[in-house]
Simulated assay, not measured.
Amino acid sequence: MKGYSRDISSFPPFQQGGLDSLCGLYSIINAERFINHSSDEETQQLFDDLVHFLTRRKLLSKLLIGGIIHTEMLTILDKVVGKQRISNVQIPWRGVQNPDLTKFWKSMQNFLDGTSNRAIILGLQGYHDHWTVIENITSRSIMLYDSALIKRLPRSSCTTVYATWKRKHLLLPAQTYFLSNEAIDINQYDY
């Protein structure tokens, strides 16, 4: 990163339970916490708001057991998280089928590079069927701020096409959310 360091060690990621499928909700909570450096109380309030929203929509048990899908993630980001907590949510790779890993990787690097109030929620399949938050990305690895305590994804193990024994981490560009509390000009990230 260029001349700046993210010190998030005083705000460890909240973790999901071992038997639930709430990684999507925790990725939202952790992204908001990462961007805003939210207190435990503020984070608890967001969690409460999410649970109440899902209960009213009769989705809580479904998400608890089966996890969250892309369209539900969009609705939650819009209706619950909203402009008060994260002012800008972009899905720059929506509708792009299997983009080149190098181009996708570089766009994530460029988005996060040197800016403290940004995060990326990344959808994964393959070895992990999971939602996570990218803390930092280098040319060789993705470092995560993750509810399941996954720390890193080596680039040599990632793909955007299909998972194999060597490239076991299938990154889902169309289910990747660029989050920020500032205006984002998505054209500058070479999508």
Results as ranks from 00 to 15, higher is better:
8 I>W: 05
9 S>E: 15
13 P>Q: 00
14 F>W: 14
15 Q>V: 11
17 G>N: 11
20 D>R: 05
23 C>L: 01
23 C>D: 00
23 C>S: 03
26 Y>R: 02
31 A>D: 11
32 E>H: 13
33 R>E: 03
33 R>M: 07
35 I>C: 02
36 N>W: 06
36 N>P: 07
38 S>H: 01
39 S>P: 04
40 D>V: 12
41 E>V: 12
43 T>L: 11
44 Q>T: 11
44 Q>H: 13
44 Q>S: 14
45 Q>S: 11
45 Q>W: 05
45 Q>Y: 10
48 D>I: 11
49 D>Q: 04
50 L>E: 01
51 V>N: 09
51 V>S: 05
51 V>Y: 09
52 H>E: 08
53 F>Q: 00
53 F>M: 05
54 L>E: 03
60 L>Q: 04
62 K>G: 00
62 K>A: 08
62 K>D: 10
62 K>N: 07
63 L>R: 00
64 L>S: 04
66 G>E: 12
68 I>K: 00
68 I>L: 03
68 I>D: 00
70 H>S: 15
71 T>M: 05
72 E>R: 03
74 L>M: 09
75 T>Q: 12
75 T>S: 10
77 L>K: 03
78 D>L: 14
82 G>T: 06
84 Q>D: 11
86 I>H: 14
86 I>R: 13
88 N>V: 15
95 G>V: 13
97 Q>C: 13
97 Q>A: 13
97 Q>M: 10
100 D>S: 11
101 L>G: 03
103 K>M: 09
103 K>G: 09
105 W>D: 02
106 K>I: 11
106 K>S: 13
107 S>G: 12
108 M>Q: 12
111 F>P: 02
111 F>G: 04
115 T>Y: 12
117 N>G: 08
119 A>T: 03
122 L>H: 07
122 L>S: 01
123 G>S: 06
123 G>T: 07
123 G>R: 01
125 Q>S: 12
129 D>A: 11
134 I>H: 06
135 E>R: 14
138 T>Q: 07
142 I>Q: 08
142 I>F: 09
143 M>F: 15
143 M>G: 09
143 M>H: 15
148 A>Q: 14
149 L>G: 05
150 I>K: 03
150 I>L: 07
151 K>R: 13
152 R>I: 15
152 R>N: 14
152 R>Y: 14
152 R>W: 09
153 L>D: 03
154 P>L: 00
159 T>P: 01
161 V>C: 06
163 A>H: 03
169 H>R: 09
170 L>S: 00
173 P>Y: 03
174 A>I: 02
175 Q>R: 10
176 T>R: 02
177 Y>M: 05
178 F>E: 07
181 N>P: 06
182 E>C: 10
185 D>P: 02
187 N>G: 13
187 N>L: 12
188 Q>H: 02
188 Q>V: 08
188 Q>S: 08
189 Y>M: 06
190 D>M: 09
191 Y>I: 15
